[in-house]
Amino acid sequence: MSMSTILTRTITRLIFLPTLVTAVAVLVKGYAGAGDGFSAGVIAGTGVVIQFLAFGPRELVARYPSLRRAPLLAWSGLLLGLVTAFAPVIWGDPIMTLYPRPGEDVPHLGLLAFHTAVLFDAAVFLLVFGFIVSVLGTIGNRYGSEGADS
């Protein structure tokens, strides 16, 4: 493939970790500035997409075998999100109630606030990231096996 030159390969290899760090930063920063789980998931997903373009499906999976588990990631994100949304119903609050309630103290670790909204956003992040990577995997793997045949 034309994308796979020495330049693109080196650059994509260099930017992979920074992309993931940026994604996590966007996810965490969402409670003080612009950012949320969805955009974090898209950023991290784009990081993987660039790798895919530069290395092709087979080499990508050889480099990061854990990418095969992406559907599990999406699934756990969905489950986590549902649990966060429906759990308040168990003790009688409306669906999607977030804790601590307004006016109550939020426990902090440095600037990171422990709020159930963070949990929900993490779920969205997992879902989006897992979804992007698994779609890529479905199309990419089949494409890879076809390429081997022809």
């Binding site: 599990l72 699934w75 969905l78 489950l79 549902l82 429906f86 119903v89 669906i95």
Partner: peptide
């Protein structure tokens, strides 16, 4: 609670059955 029950049952059921 009652209102959410049908929604919760099908939704959790769908997610729980997805990997099988």
């Amino acid at each position: 609670m009652l209102l959410l029950l049908p929604l919760a049952i099908t939704w959790f059921g769908a997610v729980a059955l997805a990997p099988f």
